[in-house]
Simulated scan of single mutants.
Amino acid sequence: MNSEFTIAVHSLVLLAYRPDRTATSEMIAANVCTHPARVRKVLSCLKKTGYVATREGSGGGYTLACDPQEVTLAEVYRVTSIGSIKPSWCSGDEDEDCLVACNMAEVMDGIFSEAENRMLTFLEQVKVTDVLDRLRLVHAAKP
C-alpha cells in the first residue's frame, strides 16, 4: 500500500466533514501534514475519476463531487494504489533447475494478488462516511 491512498482517504474525509465541502490544497496539506504539491498530485487522480472538483480564483479549491455515503475505500484504493501491495523484487534465474529459484516469483505474485483481493473485499465494506463516523467516536471518547 502507498501513501497516496492514505492522503486520498484523508482528503475525502476532510472534505466530507467541512460544512461547505471545500478546501484549498494548502488547508488539506496542513491537515494531512504533507506538502501541498503531494496533495494536488493525489487530488488530480480523484478529480479525473469524479470524486472531487476544482474551483479557480478567490474562494476556490477542491470540492467534494461525490456522495461520501456511496464511495468505498476500495474505490479509492483502485484509483490510487492498485497493485502496490506487491513489492518489486526478483528471484533466481528462471533457467536454473531449482524448484525455489524457478518458481518463487510466480508463487509470491499469486500470494500478493490474493492478499490484495481480500483487502479489497474488506475495503468494499467501508465508506468514506464510515471513516468520518469512526473519527467522531474516537474524538468523543477523548477526555
Rank of each mutant, 00 (worst) to 15 (best):
S3I: 13
E4M: 07
V9W: 00
L12H: 02
Y17A: 14
R18Y: 10
P19S: 12
V32C: 06
C33Q: 13
A37P: 02
A37K: 13
R38P: 03
R38M: 09
K41G: 07
C45I: 06
K47P: 03
G50Y: 06
Y51H: 11
R55Q: 08
E56M: 09
G59P: 07
Y62N: 02
Y62K: 00
T63L: 14
T63D: 13
A65H: 12
C66R: 03
D67K: 08
P68H: 10
Q69F: 10
L73A: 00
R78K: 09
R78E: 12
S81N: 15
S81R: 05
G83D: 04
S84G: 14
K86M: 12
K86L: 10
G92V: 01
G92T: 06
D93T: 06
E94M: 11
V100H: 09
A101D: 11
M104S: 10
V107Y: 11
M108K: 08
D109R: 11
G110Q: 14
I111Q: 11
I111F: 13
E114A: 15
E114F: 15
A115C: 15
E116P: 05
N117A: 14
L123E: 03
E124K: 00
K127R: 15
T129I: 14
L135E: 10
L137N: 11
H139Y: 09
A140W: 10
A141D: 11
